[in-house]
């Protein structure tokens, strides 16, 4: 092996350098490391209980596909019932290939798979929503519709927990963005198991990949032969998150471990900062019946705006 680097734990060739851990790892040790962190995160936040019906938000991208495989493997030792849920936002050229991957991967693992589309539920695809609108509007529509539809789908299917593929990069970006936007209450609702608002209308969301950096999820997918499409959402460049992502990556290169430290600091602060109870009791949307703070939920308001 010319010019090769060895694993810090055995004599095999290294496939990755983990600067924050000051180590290099071969395929075997790296995959075990990712799997251990996933299981440890599930235990740390008591995310799952034996026998639960767990929904997996499966876009068919790298994060959710890796999550699907890890959840499937976990379900062998911790008996769980799994159902994969794909939301088709209706973005031409971007979503159809990943929906196909989602269907194939769920079938391969013998996991029930359901697809819901913006167009069939709300009457608008993201492409039609975006016609004639400023680019920066995309994420606010897409995020509200997706959260609403995932929650609705989970309740329809009797899902008790919804696992989503948010990784360390996503959560560290969210922590910073909430601080930058001066939204401390929203920040305190954030976490491994989302929500301080407990209501039967909300299906709890869990983030078992929150301690795994995005790059490592991509590498794990490559090493495990999980099919993935590396492509960018055509509307994503407009989001503030892109700027935060680039700056955070620059910080991580200069000061390895930054993303972990942001998450850990936030989790420590959360332990001591008790959020005040909600000012008003939760209501249910007069149009769709989903939980909301006002008469009409944010999703139905957006649909009204489009009609």
């Amino acid at each position: 092996m010319d010019g090769g680097i060895f694993c810090s734990f055995c004599k095999s060739e290294a496939v990755v350098t983990l600067a924050y851990a000051n180590s290099c790892m071969c395929k075997k040790h790296f995959c075990e490391y990712v799997e251990k962190r996933f299981r440890r995160t599930v235990r740390e936040f008591s995310m799952l209980k034996k026998g639960e019906l767990v929904g997996i938000g499966l876009s068919g991208g790298k994060d959710s596909s890796v999550l699907l495989h890890l959840m499937h493997s976990l379900s062998k030792s911790l008996p769980l019932r799994l159902v994969a849920i794909t939301i088709d936002e209706g973005i031409k050229g971007y979503r159809p290939p990943t929906v196909k991957i989602a269907r194939q991967e769920a079938k391969k693992l013998g996991i029930m798979h359901k697809t819901y589309s913006f167009a069939s539920v709300y009457g608008y695809s993201m492409d039609s929503v975006m016609k004639g609108k400023p680019q920066e509007a995309a994420c606010s529509y897409c995020g509200v519709f997706r959260r609403h539809l995932l929650n609705k789908a989970c309740k329809e299917l009797g899902v008790q927990k919804l696992a989503i593929g948010h990784n360390l990069d996503d959560v560290s970006q969210t922590v910073l963005m909430n601080i930058m936007r001066n939204e401390p209450m929203r920040l305190l609702r954030f976490g491994g198991v989302a929500g301080i608002i407990e209501d039967e209308g909300f299906v709890p969301r869990i983030k078992p990949l929150m301690r795994i950096p995005e790059r490592e999820i991509g590498l794990y997918a490559i090493l495990k032969g999980i099919p993935i499409k590396f492509q960018e959402c055509p509307y994503a460049y407009t989001a503030m998150r892109q700027t935060v992502r680039a700056q955070l990556n620059e910080m991580e290169e200069k000061y390895p471990g930054t993303k972990f430290r942001i998450l850990n600091s936030f989790l420590e602060i959360k332990k001591i900062a008790k959020p005040p109870p909600p000012k008003e009791r939760l209501k249910y949307c007069e149009k769709c019946g989903e939980p909301t703070n006002s008469k009409i939920c944010a999703c139905c308001k957006l649909v009204e705006k489009l009609d």
């Binding site: 680097i5 290294a14 496939v15 790059r215 991509g218 590498l219 490559i222 680039a246 990556n249 620059e250």
Partner: peptide, 18 residues
């Protein structure tokens, strides 16, 4: 950015120092 890409050498992902 090192955080955003993977380098494969002869078909296999490689460590930074390779």
């Amino acid at each position: 950015s090192r955080e955003e890409c993977i380098v494969k050498v002869n078909g296999k992902p490689a460590a930074d120092g390779r």
